[in-house]
Simulated assay, not measured.
Amino acid sequence: MKTYGLIGYRLGYSFSKGFFTDKFEREGLKEHEYVNFELNTISEFPSIFKKNDHIAGLNCTIPYKQEIMPYLDEVDEEATQVGAINTVKIIRSADQTKLKGFNTDIYGFENSLMPMLNKKHKKALILGTGGASKAIKHILDKNNIDYLSASIEEELFEKEIRYEQIDESLLKEHLIIIHATPLGTFPKIDNCPSVPYEHITSDHVLFDLVYNPELTLFLKKGLEKGASIKNGLEMLHLQAIKAWEIWNA
């Protein structure tokens, strides 16, 4: 039996478990399973290998995407730049087992967002400054797209603004708006970021990392203004497919 799994805290329903369980059934991979490993603290991470000596690959989600890094033997260069891990490759040899960390959110986000853009999309507004925004900023930097981040935190850092500073002139310049908070996720679907949606136009691209519901209030408001929209489901599919490639390379 090959065991793959997700490391996290209070996982409940996870996209990864559903995705890979369906994949294994569809492809007739009967000797494969996907397990949720709920950890109260990251210090419990090494113990999962003592109980499961056939782990073949792992995903990692909040709140451990950064905390897991000291437990790894090696970290991919791009994941190091972002400072977050969501995929762990298990490399076994005759005398040892090594763990290498990757961030496939980078691949998923880039390949989901970039096809939506054209030459006029030169600046982005990121709504939220949490862990999810790290991969987003990395990809925007990589593609020479300038950005600002809207924050609710007391202290503002470089390239961060208050939501109250988002006005018509700022939205005219920032034609890419990326929502990187859980706001509007089921069941609280009547919530959305505080943005002056009346200034959204058909030139805008709205990308929401939330995928449940499929059409969040944030995306609905953009759609009403003729904006191009996309939720986070394709990104999740792409990052999962990339993780599978890494585990089996």
Score class of each variant (00 low, 15 high):
His32Met: 10
Gly232Asn: 04
Thr104Leu: 02
Phe15Gly: 00
Pro115Val: 04
Ala135His: 06
Arg26Gly: 12
Ile106Gln: 00
Ile68Arg: 03
Pro70Thr: 04
Ile152Gly: 10
Gly57Gln: 04
Leu72Trp: 06
His204Met: 02
Lys65Leu: 04
Glu78Tyr: 12
Thr87Trp: 04
Lys123Leu: 10
Leu72His: 05
Trp244Lys: 03
Ser202Ala: 15
Met114Tyr: 13
Ser149Leu: 13
Leu140Trp: 07
Gln66Ala: 14
Thr3Arg: 13
Pro213Asn: 01
Ile161Thr: 08
Asn191His: 15
Gly5Cys: 02
Lys120Ala: 12
Ser228Val: 15
Tyr71Ser: 05
Leu113Phe: 03
Lys134Ile: 08
Lys221Trp: 03
Arg26Asp: 15
Gln96His: 15
Tyr13Ser: 14
Ile200Phe: 08
Ile152Trp: 10
Asn111Ala: 08
Ser133Gly: 09
Phe109Ser: 04
Glu33Leu: 11
Asp73Tyr: 07
Pro70Ser: 01
Glu214Leu: 12
Leu29Gln: 13
Arg162Ile: 06
Lys221Thr: 01
Arg10Ala: 14
Pro46His: 01
Phe186Leu: 12
Ile177Ala: 00
Leu215Pro: 00
Thr41Glu: 14
Pro187Arg: 02
Ser169Leu: 14
Gln239Glu: 09
Val82Asp: 02
Gly130Ile: 07
Ser194Arg: 14
Arg162Ser: 11
Glu110Gly: 07
His179Ala: 07
Glu31Phe: 11
Glu234Met: 14
Tyr64Phe: 11
Pro196Gly: 06
Leu127Met: 05
Lys122Met: 11
His138Trp: 15
Leu72Pro: 07
Ser93Phe: 09
Ser112Trp: 09
Asp95Leu: 11
Thr80Val: 13
Pro187Lys: 01
Gly226Ser: 08
Gly57Glu: 05
Ile152Phe: 11
Gln239Pro: 06
Phe20Lys: 01
Phe109His: 07
Thr181Ile: 03
His204Ile: 01
Thr3Tyr: 10
Leu156Phe: 02
Arg26His: 15
Lys100Asn: 11
Gly226Ile: 06
Gly83Leu: 00
Glu155Gly: 09
Ile48Phe: 01
Ser43Ile: 13
Lys137Asn: 09
Ser16Phe: 06
Arg10Leu: 13
Lys100Trp: 11
Pro46Tyr: 01
Ser93His: 11
His179Asp: 06
Leu219Thr: 02
Lys89Ile: 09
